[in-house]
Design a protein around this nucleic acid. Sequence first.
DNA 1: TTGAAAGCGCTAACAA
DNA 2: TTGTTAGCGCTTTCAA
Lengths: 344, 344
Amino acid sequence: VAQDARQRPTLNDVARVAGVHAGTASRALNGDPQGGVNPATAERVRAAAEQLGYRPNQVARGLKMNRSFSIGVIVPDLTNPIIPPVVRGIEQRLGPAGYTVLLGNTDHEPEREATFVDAMVARQVDGLIMATARSVDQPLAERSALLPIVLVNRTATSVDLPAAVPDNHGCVELAVGHLAGLGHRTIAHAGGPSGTSSGTERLEAFRRTCAARGIVVDDALVASAERYTIDEGRRVGRALLAGEAPISAIVAANDMLALGCIDAIRERGLRCPQDVSVVGINDMPFADRFDPPLTTVRIPHYELGVTAAELLLERFAQPQADSRLVQLSPELVVRASSGPAPGR
Amino acid sequence: VAQDARQRPTLNDVARVAGVHAGTASRALNGDPQGGVNPATAERVRAAAEQLGYRPNQVARGLKMNRSFSIGVIVPDLTNPIIPPVVRGIEQRLGPAGYTVLLGNTDHEPEREATFVDAMVARQVDGLIMATARSVDQPLAERSALLPIVLVNRTATSVDLPAAVPDNHGCVELAVGHLAGLGHRTIAHAGGPSGTSSGTERLEAFRRTCAARGIVVDDALVASAERYTIDEGRRVGRALLAGEAPISAIVAANDMLALGCIDAIRERGLRCPQDVSVVGINDMPFADRFDPPLTTVRIPHYELGVTAAELLLERFAQPQADSRLVQLSPELVVRASSGPAPGR
DNA sequence: TTGAAAGCGCTAACAA
DNA sequence: TTGTTAGCGCTTTCAA
């Protein structure tokens, strides 16, 4: 693989033009915390740098300082619309702090994930933010010995890492509360993958919340998807609707599953929300333009990203501090996929 | 900013364990093209590397080889749903070739763009793929003197760079052809930003295509948005609908604008598609779930990314070759936002 | 076939 | 205050 050999000015070039030594130039440009640099000299160096269009080689810098000023972000699926806001939040917080973000997309494949982590570690990223955690994630434990890792959106129970996640219990409470307020008494749950913290926590929250409100949840009213896709939502929705007891509402573990449930409802010749209400979780982009506009629980994805970035920065500052778990509050967004229980 | 000081094994460690010199270890691990390495020695080195869990430090490697094995991708807006597929395509093609992608999100701000390019150049990226080109893009010309740059999705006229773009003329032809076939004779165009190649090319294609079919396009039938947003689509849609001549169809320069146009149509108490048909361009994710499901022209975004990556690889191999412009073919996707012209 | 040595561009002691 | 020197981890001549 040949390469353009365009030469960019080095610190040495700057030093030569300014008539000083490279070490001095380095100090002048970086504002050495120790001894000072003669203001006149510093000015001369800055002028030379300016004139040559000097940009420090961060690679060399990183090699020397054992830092790369970049951090890796690993996501399960960039085309999942809730992910970009997270990435943006991370970037927005880390950019001003001097870091560039490297992005890796795993397509949900643990193997690709491993490849990316390797590639990033090889590039000496200063830290990793991962949105791909599985509940039991052994490799994660080993990796966290290699470099600081922060989790976002999901957590892992197998290892204690800082994490920024939604308040899953709060999400479900909001959804169930909304439906209960509308008179629904037979509420089903289209659960998320059992291997994810969101899946298991939301399911557990569903049971607890219903119990607290005196709503019975028998086993036929709960089914879990294997992935957060519309197709899986449709499959789970069909299963729920096929049960003995007629259900009047479904709380889906996320918006994609909710969309699939709506498909399943229509397949049976029922209407949403007149016959069956559906509430999702996420408030994904365009949720307001679907047919029907989706009632859902908004999760602040951008803030999730910002918070994860902050947790990583905290880690850098205090590597030994305890892992913090930050739970962000959700918000109910009522649209048209939910309505009064039939017969009310 | 303190830092964990976890030590990872170096090539020297591997060499020591294998009982050879670092240079030899390097040759063994990389399969030196020149002289060979004793197979037994090579095996010993590989075993040592394996045992220590050695991962080459790409930073040091890059410093020496003057390459970083990473390429930068700069996008205008990650939350625009057509962008992730492009990024994924790039990544999918470049990953196996040994490159990691660094992602930068500019939020459409030229200033942030400049910051990112600087950051990436400083990190010695081997090349840049930019989805942010403006038609007249002076900074781009200067930057392309610094490192190989490939454009994706949009082109710039002010500088001759390899680019992977949709066939904009084909897109419009498909849209207009579809509407003409449905009997529409008064077709308006909700154009894209005049500063983008997609905006100007699609507008020009609209005029040409209509002319070729004997459809008159007076000035009241064309209006341009300033950004590709739903809001701008609504604004432009209102302007179009407020004209003297009643229009029966709108070709929008992209799906977001199409969505805004549909809003504008409804605001006036009209129905889509019964009163006014709308055709978008892109076939963005979830276009099939909008209300009404959107008729649109599909652009292969993933392939756009793959192609851009390939163009960059070509550049690496032959830095002096002429800039290639690759235009990818669109495809009409008929859904429910278009129908027969009223009165037919 | 392997070892020795130089050096990529930078920073950080240490001297002067 | 500035110059000198060493070295981050790696590849790559050049000798042996």
